[in-house]
Design a protein around this nucleic acid. Structure first.
Lengths: 244, 244
DNA sequence: TCTGATCACTGCACTGAGTGTCACCAACGT
DNA sequence: ACGTTGGTGACACTCAGTGCAGTGATCAGA
């Protein structure tokens, strides 16, 4: 009883606003309103399209599945990340580059903190959405790993190291992001993510922390038990100095 | 045409074999036979139960979803891993411990190479199964991260480092495992996984290489920049000693 | 202005996964 | 013999997702 009467859909340009909230936005808004009101699983697609005043078939034209409406902009963000990586200069530090790529996702979340927090609360509670989010994150990770593979593919264990570095960067990124989401968007995302990615970068890449304002990693302590083989101490010294 | 006539289901113990292929196994066998014959998505649950000669409702009693029948033993393996981690001695190297925990999964795959390879071919092709596998892997990773958090939770960035190390270990493990699966189970899984986990272990843990079972964390190197505040050096000394 | 094409949208019917409910039956203890 | 319990099958139902046909609007060109 709602589909035909509501939303008379006119093309005369009488819309006062930006003239481009084109049903996709309306569907996302309606979906989130219902999801937050009564929960994700208690909301059917029919409920959403009824509230949005559109036909049921239109929902699936904009979103391949009900889960997709919860992550409406990740497809674009993933494309941005791939473009960013593809445009990398040859001489760039690969680890630094993937960290910067990860920051694109942070930016997406930070653009709309309230929305991000609401979605976080949803994914925390609904197992199906958690699984979907995993597949989203996985695609980001794949993009990073693929780029890294191209950069250090020639080296020994290049493929494996690419996977490991990508996973570590994503894990560091996610840890900082989740912490921020738990703070309801109050904390400083940028700083937290920089710190976490700095750890990943110092573990795998060259320099430890980018700005190095008062760098705590500069302090490392030697605790060597008597009888430790000299080569082992030497190796540790080498790797420690290799950081700078 | 098959459900009523086949498998007359008797309880008289007349089965010659172990008397306990209890319908669950029959469902897995029937499912995989059909999945390999005509594909996962082309096989309905009705097809499976018809071939197995059981009622449709019974399928969902043993498997919460159609996807679960593809990963019939991961629930048990995950429980094994948690038990393994819970029983860890206090003085064990945490990174070494999570690597050993990851080897439990390898063992599960290696127990039945043909089955593992078939499943790998399925998950490679079907997006839904890939997503499901991600959620399975995620639960393993969570178990590892939770254990690590308990071990290095007190340290600086302990929570984040736990996530990063768990992700790196899982990535290294998966890389070796997938390589083995691509070889159709011909390569030496153990060696490949040992090598990959050795990389992860040398990156995060104390000792660089796996051979050298004797105390690795005993070697740490101090590199302190001039002018570093004393309290910072002291803190690092404390945390370094706190390991033992 | 008429016409044909295209596009976005809707309604409808259908498949298939997953669930709730109930009846059935075998095994078991009393 | 009895009631109980647990595994099972049959049935009906909800809901996600798809295929298809139809409709109205815009726009091209005759």
């Amino acid at each position: 009883m709602s589909s035909s009467s509501a939303a008379p859909r006119r093309g005369d340009g009488s819309d006062t606003a930006g003239a481009r909230p084109p049903m996709r936005e309306a569907l996302v808004a309606a979906a989130f309103r219902l999801f937050l009101e009564r929960g994700y699983e208690q909301t059917t697609v029919d409920d959403i399209v009824a509230l949005a005043g559109v036909g049921r078939r239109s929902f699936f034209r904009y979103f391949p599945s009900k889960e997709d409406v919860v992550f409406p902009d990740h497809e674009r963000c993933l494309a941005d990340m791939k473009a960013f990586l593809d445009s990398s200069p040859e001489d760039a530090d690969p680890v630094r580059r993937v960290c910067d790529a990860a920051r694109l996702v942070v930016r997406l979340y930070a653009e709309n903190p309230a929305f991000s927090v609401q979605r976080y609360d949803l994914t925390k509670k609904v197992p199906g959405l958690r699984a979907y989010e995993l597949s989203v994150v996985w695609r980001y990770e794949r993009a990073l790993a693929q780029y890294l593979r191209g950069r250090l593919g020639g080296r020994r264990d290049g493929s494996m190291r690419a996977d490991v570095i990508a996973a570590a960067v994503v894990a560091a990124h996610n840890n900082a992001l989740r912490s921020w989401l738990r703070s309801k968007g109050q904390d400083d995302v940028g700083a937290a993510v920089d710190h976490a990615l700095g750890y990943a970068q110092s573990t795998f890449g060259g320099l430890p922390v980018p700005p190095l304002p008062e760098g705590p990693e500069d302090v490392v302590v030697v605790v060597s038990r008597r009888g430790t083989p000299l080569w082992q101490v030497v190796r540790e010294v080498e790797t420690a100095f290799a950081r700078d």
